[in-house]
Design a protein around this nucleic acid. Structure first.
Lengths: 243, 243
DNA sequence: ACGACTCTTCGGCCGGCGCCGAACCGTCCC
DNA sequence: GGGACGGTTCGGCGCCGGCCGAAGAGTCGT
C-alpha cells in the first residue's frame, strides 16, 4: 500500500526548507551561545551550558534536544550527566564560519578579570581542535614564510610542509574524508590560520609534547618555556610575540 | 550627559547575540529560498522573488528589507523596480556553505520538464560567480591531474597553475581582500570545485570567449562546440563528460 | 492625463517558540 | 535508606514574527 502522499506535494518546491531548518538551529540566542561555547572542542554538561547562558535547566534541556536532533551536537550520557559536544569537525566548521561572518569584534572588556582572561585568549587558544589566537596565527605565518604553507594562491601545505610534519613526528591522517588542510578565519584576528586534520594533529602534538598547556579548563592555552624554545628553533617564532 | 546605559548591560554577556541574528536571516524558509535563488549571482527583482517563493509581494518586500539590513543582500533601485543581489562574494560563500551542510540531495524530480532542467543544471551551471556542476568539477579535476591545482594538501593553485592562467590571458586580480582560490563544496556533487577570484575570472573568461553560453536566463550553462575543443585541447577534458 | 504596474506600509491575524516552575525520574554519596 | 543533585517532561504564559489584503506612493507607457 502506497503512502498517502499529498498530490500537491512537490519535493523540490520548497528550496529553502532544509537551509532554513539548519539556520533555525543557530537562530536562537541561547542555542547560538551553546554552540560558541562548545567551539572549545570539549564536552560540556547540560547544567554547565545552562548556567553559562543563564537559562533554566529545563530550557537548556529542550535546546540541547533540538541541537542533537539537528545533527549539530552529539551527546554522551554518563551517570546522571549529559555530556554534549559538537558532532564533528564539519559542525565546528559551520559554527566557526558563521561566527566569522558576524562583523566587528566587540569593544574592550569591562572588568579586570575579563580583561586578563581575554588577553590570555588573544595570546593563544584552541578553536575546536586546532590552535588559534596569536599563537595560531604565529604558527601559520611562520610556516608560510618558511615555505611550508602557501597562502598566496589558495591555502595548502607545500611538499616541504608535508616533510616538516614528518620530521616533527606528527602523523598526517589522509584517509578520512576530512580535508587535510583548510583555513579557519578567526573572528577576532581577521586572518586565516591552519585548521583541518593537519591543524588538529599539530594542536594535539604541541599539547602532548608539553610545548603548550591549557590554562584552567577553558580554551586558552599558554606556551611553556620548552615550547618557546621549540617554536623558535623549529619555526623561528620570536617568544615575545606570544607574550 | 551620559547615555542612560542600563548598569546590568554587559557587552559580551550575550555571546550568541550576533550569531543568532545572522542565522535568523536564513532561518525563515522564504528568505532561505530567496538566498538560494540569488546564488545564481544575478540581480532579481522583488516581484520575481515573490513569485518564485509563492508569497505576496508585501511579504517579499518585508523579507528583502531584513536581508538588506542584515548585510546579506544589496539593492539597487531602477525606476519602479527593486533589484536585489547577494551583497558580495562573502555573502555568497556563507549561503553556499550553509547549503552544503544541508544533508542529502533530494530524490529524482517528478516531471519531465523538471528532469530536463535539472539535468542541464547538473551538466553545468554557475554558482554565484564561478562554474559548478559537472562542468565545474571537470575543470577542477582536469586542472588537478595536470598539476595546475593541488587538492591533496589543501586547495591552492600551483606555480604551473598561475602560469596557465597567464597563458590563457586570464588576469588574476590579487589585490582585493578576496581569496584568490578557495574550494566550493557543491551540494549536489559532494566534491569541491574551484571558487574564489580565480574561479570567477575563469567563469567570466569562458563566457566572454564563447566557450560556454547561459541557457535562458537561469544558472545553467552549456558548452559550445568551440568550448568543447578548447577544453579538450587546453585541459584534456573529454567532451562526452559534459553531455 | 490616465491607467497599468511595481513596490511599500500598515493593521490584524495566527501559529510557533522560547521561557519558566513544578513535578518527576534516575544517579550518586553519605 | 535518605537526601542532594542533575536532567527531563509537561503545562502554561507571553511574545515575536511571518503572512495576507487593502491602501497608497512612485514610475512608466500611451
Amino acid at each position: 500500500m502506497a503512502l498517502p502522499t499529498h498530490p500537491e506535494h512537490r519535493p523540490d518546491d520548497r528550496p529553502g526548507e532544509r537551509l532554513a531548518a539548519l539556520a533555525s538551529l543557530l537562530a536562537d540566542e541561547t542555542r547560538a551561545a551553546f554552540c560558541l561555547a562548545l567551539l572549545d572542542g570539549r564536552a560540556w554538561t547540560a547544567g554547565e551550558l545552562a548556567r553559562y547562558a543563564r537559562v533554566a535547566p529545563s530550557t537548556a534541556s529542550e535546546h540541547l534536544g533540538k541541537l542533537v536532533a539537528g545533527g549539530l551536537l552529539t551527546e554522551e550520557r554518563q551517570g546522571r550527566h549529559r555530556y554534549v559536544r559538537l558532532a564533528d569537525p564539519r559542525a565546528a566548521h559551520l559554527v566557526e564560519d558563521l561566527a566569522a561572518h558576524t562583523a566587528p569584534p566587540r569593544a574592550s572588556p569591562y572588568t579586570l578579570r575579563a580583561a586578563s582572561a581575554s588577553a590570555a585568549m588573544a595570546r593563544g587558544r584552541t578553536c575546536y581542535d586546532h590552535l588559534a589566537g596569536r599563537l595560531g596565527l604565529a604558527v601559520t605565518d611562520a610556516m608560510t614564510v618558511r615555505g611550508l604553507l602557501r597562502q598566496d594562491t589558495g591555502f595548502a601545505l607545500t611538499d616541504l610542509g608535508v616533510e616538516w610534519f614528518g620530521e616533527q613526528g606528527i602523523g598526517l591522517d589522509r584517509t578520512g574524508r576530512r580535508p587535510l588542510v583548510r583555513p579557519c578565519l578567526d573572528w577576532t584576528e581577521r586572518r586565516p590560520h591552519l585548521a583541518g586534520a593537519a591543524g588538529a594533529a599539530l594542536c594535539r602534538h604541541v599539547l602532548d609534547t608539553g610545548w603548550c598547556v591549557r590554562i584552567g579548563s577553558g580554551r586558552a592555552v599558554k606556551v611553556t618555556p620548552r615550547g618557546e624554545r621549540a617554536l623558535y628553533e623549529g619555526l623561528g617564532i620570536e617568544p615575545r610575540i606570544l607574550r
